[in-house]
Amino acid sequence: KTVHVNGVQYDFDNPEQAERFAKEMAKKAGLQIQFHGDQIKIE
């Protein structure tokens, strides 16, 4: 899974790890999470 945070890309082999990371980042920055198939976007 790939997580995009403000244009920066983070790759994870483990989907659960990717989602946990995305939730942490979104919570910290007060941003929205969008799921697009294999990609998670935080903007």
Rank of each mutant, 00 (worst) to 15 (best):
K1M: 14
K1P: 07
K1C: 15
K1V: 14
K1Y: 14
K1Q: 09
K1E: 04
K1A: 11
K1D: 03
K1I: 14
K1R: 12
T2H: 13
T2E: 03
T2K: 06
T2Q: 10
T2V: 09
T2S: 11
T2A: 05
T2F: 00
T2D: 01
V3W: 00
V3N: 03
V3Y: 00
V3S: 01
V3F: 00
H4W: 15
H4V: 15
H4K: 09
H4Q: 09
H4C: 15
V5Q: 01
V5F: 12
V5W: 12
V5G: 02
V5D: 01
V5K: 04
N6A: 08
N6D: 09
N6M: 10
N6G: 10
N6Y: 00
N6L: 12
N6R: 04
G7P: 01
G7M: 02
G7T: 03
G7I: 04
G7S: 07
V8C: 15
V8I: 12
V8T: 06
V8Q: 07
V8R: 10
V8F: 09
V8N: 05
Q9L: 08
Q9D: 09
Q9S: 09
Q9M: 08
Q9Y: 08
Y10L: 06
Y10M: 07
Y10W: 04
Y10K: 03
D11M: 06
D11W: 14
D11Q: 09
D11S: 06
D11R: 01
D11I: 11
D11T: 10
D11A: 04
F12S: 02
F12C: 12
F12Q: 02
F12K: 02
D13K: 00
D13N: 04
D13Q: 04
D13A: 05
D13P: 05
N14E: 10
N14K: 03
N14W: 06
N14P: 00
N14Y: 07
N14G: 05
N14A: 05
P15I: 13
P15L: 12
P15S: 13
P15A: 13
P15F: 13
P15Q: 12
P15E: 13
P15D: 12
P15K: 12
E16F: 05
E16T: 08
E16D: 10
E16A: 10
E16Y: 06
E16M: 08
E16W: 06
E16K: 06
E16L: 06
E16R: 03
Q17P: 01
Q17K: 03
Q17V: 08
A18E: 06
A18G: 03
A18W: 05
A18I: 03
A18F: 08
A18C: 10
A18R: 02
E19S: 02
E19K: 05
E19N: 06
E19L: 15
E19C: 15
E19R: 07
E19Y: 07
E19W: 07
R20S: 14
R20M: 11
R20N: 13
R20V: 04
R20K: 11
R20G: 09
R20E: 14
R20D: 13
F21Q: 05
F21R: 01
F21K: 01
F21V: 06
F21A: 06
F21I: 05
F21P: 03
F21H: 05
A22E: 09
A22P: 03
A22T: 03
A22F: 12
K23H: 10
K23A: 11
K23D: 13
K23S: 08
K23N: 12
E24W: 00
E24G: 00
E24N: 02
E24A: 07
M25G: 01
M25V: 10
M25F: 02
M25S: 03
A26S: 07
A26V: 03
A26C: 14
A26P: 00
A26R: 01
A26K: 02
A26Q: 09
A26N: 05
K27G: 11
K27Q: 11
K27W: 00
K27P: 04
K27M: 07
K27S: 12
K27I: 08
K27D: 12
K28Q: 13
K28P: 03
K28N: 11
K28T: 11
K28F: 03
K28H: 12
K28G: 08
A29V: 11
A29G: 10
A29D: 11
A29S: 12
G30M: 05
G30V: 01
G30A: 07
G30Y: 01
G30D: 10
G30C: 15
G30Q: 05
L31I: 08
L31Y: 04
L31H: 08
L31M: 12
Q32H: 11
Q32V: 14
Q32C: 15
I33Q: 04
I33T: 04
I33G: 07
I33N: 09
Q34M: 08
Q34S: 12
Q34P: 00
Q34K: 09
Q34V: 11
Q34Y: 06
F35S: 11
F35L: 13
F35I: 14
F35G: 11
F35K: 11
H36R: 01
H36C: 15
H36W: 14
H36E: 15
H36I: 14
H36T: 08
H36Y: 13
G37Y: 01
G37M: 00
G37R: 00
G37D: 14
G37T: 08
G37N: 10
G37F: 00
G37I: 00
D38W: 00
D38I: 02
D38A: 04
D38T: 06
Q39E: 13
Q39H: 11
Q39S: 12
I40R: 01
I40D: 09
I40N: 06
I40W: 00
I40G: 07
I40C: 15
I40H: 05
I40M: 05
K41A: 10
K41P: 09
K41Q: 10
K41I: 15
K41N: 11
K41H: 14
K41S: 12
I42L: 13
I42H: 07
I42V: 11
I42W: 01
I42E: 08
I42P: 09
I42K: 06
I42N: 07
E43A: 08
E43M: 09
E43C: 15
E43F: 10
E43P: 07
E43Y: 05
E43Q: 09
E43L: 11
E43S: 10
E43W: 06
E43I: 12
E43H: 07
